[in-house]
Write a protein that binds this DNA or RNA. Structure first.
Length: 555
RNA sequence: UGACCUAUGGUGUAAUUGGCAACACAUCUGAUUUUGGUUCAGACAUUCUAGGUUCGAGUCCUAGUAGGUCAACCA
């Protein structure tokens, strides 16, 4: 057996070094820490895959922990949606879902520890004054006049903060680190602020809430997380993350930063996604155009495709912009393998087979999925009148056009080879009907005609065709990076044609009453899934991704 | 007027740690095909720049250049 050396990403290298050195007894424990203030998107999908797959690879565990330390933006509605998305992606966290708010009491005592060590103080300065004293990246900060309060006074005031004796914004608890540090985050960061707000889990029990820097690392430590993975923006937080753990003398979780994923034509800013929803540019968080996990699910992207995509994208520390084509390739791959085939005519034109007996109806056998022959066949009606795709016919066709044109032959998929004889047009010159004759000995499966047409067309039987609605989706924005210039006007790059509804498409009856979410390959066109808006009257299909097109008509 | 991070095909990641620059996507050829799909074969790189160390540098050293991040009582 030839051993192929597997290449490791930089996080795996760190983990393997830790295991080799016996750190934490070789244990690997990660966590996915969403804030329940919005829906998960493609960027979260990458973080989820990394955390869960890395832990699984090394026999470890992954916690789901909601980072709910800001009561005014968070809600249980998001908690449930986030859980659903993670499970749909195919992952299960260790035990029950956890919450940073579960540790509020412990964090409070951590803060008291720090005060007692002379490493934290209550600051009465206004937010403006604190910002002023903090300096800028290139100008050192200045010490607060409240920095040298006695431990006893700090203890009393902090307890007063906790007991609700002071109004919002009047005081904060700050860590006493170093106002001259070149790292802004080390300039006496705020640990606790006063917020008389209702928390989605602790209700009105608390009026002080810890800041991210005094909650995240502490939660990691409490859960004995070994490798705390986050995105690059948190690089500057690491010295503070380590400082708190060191001063508190608690379990030393380690923060490791990786580059978050950017995908062309997509945005992952929660604020901007919310704006798209609120201003009705999309129909909701799960609009199939949204880069949210729920949106992609409704779009018909299989969870497996998302996982494969995240794996292929890799993990590194440099800024990146992934082409959507890679995502679409992953989606096609899974859908090609798994989805049933069906014939749907999106833009119908009638075709009459003049030498086919009127009133005759044949049951033709069609394969369900050529990639899975074991699935067998089903039957489709064929008769004298059918519909074909308008784009599959051209009166004056170039030589490279392999479809139907007067005088040319073409194969009807699963049926007969036909020869085009004539056509009818309306006053405006639109083709209204195409007349063909068929070769009776060319039936699919036992073709003895010897005719070798260049192309094969999909079709639907006129007598049994049903109308449906097809929602064709395209990228949400017209340029790859709609937020590059950092203007709020990313909306000017909104793609007005990101949704085109087609209500004249014709399906074969087989497609009626299929399960919501089920994917089909509409032969020669693309992958579509059944939308939840479908009902007994009308099926609604969402375009997941089109088939690759090897030939583009030049008109 | 700083600190930190990052630089490898069009895109994204590799390169057994100093030994023939690899894989995937995209693009372009060609073969196969009753889906112009799938599948198969092939093509596509001054490793940011300039010096240096070395038999040998994507990898090590020096100096540049470019991009990113940091000044919420958000996470």
């Amino acid at each position: 057996m030839s051993e192929k050396k597997e290449s490791l990403n930089f996080i795996e290298q760190i983990i393997e070094e830790d295991i080799a050195s016996g750190k934490h007894g070789g244990r690997v424990h990660t966590r996915f820490p969403p804030e329940p203030n919005g829906y998960l998107h493609i960027g979260h999908a990458k973080a989820i895959c990394i955390n869960f797959e890395l832990a699984a690879k090394y026999g470890g565990k992954t916690n789901l922990r909601f980072d709910d330390t800001n009561p005014i933006t968070e809600d249980t509605e998001y908690v449930e949606a986030i859980k659903k998305d993670i499970q749909w992606l195919g992952f299960q966290w260790e035990g029950e879902a956890l919450f940073a708010s579960d540790y509020f009491d412990q964090m409070y005592h951590f803060a008291i520890d720090l005060i007692k060590k002379g490493l934290a103080y209550v600051d009465d300065s206004t937010p403006e004054m604190i910002a002023e004293m903090k300096g800028t990246p290139t100008v050192q900060g200045k010490n607060s006049p409240f920095r040298d309060r006695t431990i006893e006074e700090n203890l009393t005031l902090f307890e007063g903060m906790k007991n609700g004796e002071f109004p919002d914004g009047s005081r904060v608890l700050r860590a006493k680190v170093d106002m001259t540090s070149p790292n802004m985050l080390m300039r006496d960061p705020v640990m606790y602020r006063i917020k008389h707000a209702h928390h989605h889990r602790t209700g009105n029990q608390w009026v002080i809430y810890p800041m991210y820097d005094f909650a995240h690392g502490q939660s990691d430590s409490i859960e004995h997380i070994t490798h705390s993975l986050c995105s690059l923006e948190f690089r500057h937080h690491r010295p503070l993350y380590d400082w708190f753990i060191q001063q508190l003398e608690i379990f030393p979780s380690r923060q490791i930063e990786f580059a978050r994923m950017n995908v062309a034509y997509m945005i992952t800013s929660k604020r901007r996604l919310l704006k798209l929803v609120q201003e009705n540019y999309v129909t909701g968080w799960d609009d199939p155009r949204m880069p949210t996990i729920s949106g992609m699910r409704r779009r018909g992207y299989p969870a497996e495709a998302l996982r494969v995509f995240c794996d292929k994208v890799g993990v590194a520390k440099r800024d990146n912009l992934i082409e959507v084509e890679l995502l679409e390739s992953c989606v096609r791959d899974v859908l090609n393998r798994d989805s049933e085939r069906a014939m749907v005519v999106l833009n119908p034109v009638k075709l009459v087979i003049t030498n086919y007996p009127d009133g005759k109806c044949e049951k033709l056998s069609v394969e369900i999925n050529p990639e899975k022959p074991e699935l067998g066949h089903r039957e489709v009606d064929f008769s004298r009148e059918i519909f074909i795709e308008r784009e599959d016919f051209m009166e004056d066709a170039p030589r490279k056009f392999f479809r139907l044109s007067p005088g040319r032959d073409v194969r009807l998929k699963h049926a007969y080879i036909i020869h085009c004889n004539s056509l009818e047009k309306d006053e405006e010159g639109n083709v209204t009907e195409i007349h063909c004759s068929y070769y009776p000995d060319s039936r699919s499966g036992n073709d003895t005609s010897g005719v070798k047409p260049k192309g094969t067309l999909h079709w639907v039987n006129a007598g049994s065709a049903k109308k449906c609605i097809v929602r064709n989706y395209d990228r949400l924005f017209t340029i790859p990076e709609p937020t590059v210039d950092d203007g709020q006007d990313f909306l000017k790059f909104y793609n007005e044609e990101s949704l085109v509804v087609n209500d004249k498409a014709l399906i074969e009856p087989y497609l009626l009453r299929q399960d919501v979410g089920k994917s089909f390959q509409f032969l020669r066109q693309g992958y579509y899934c059944v939308d939840a808006d479908s009902n007994d009257e009308t099926m609604i299909f969402n375009l997941s991704v089109s088939l690759k097109e090897g030939w583009k008509p030049g008109y």
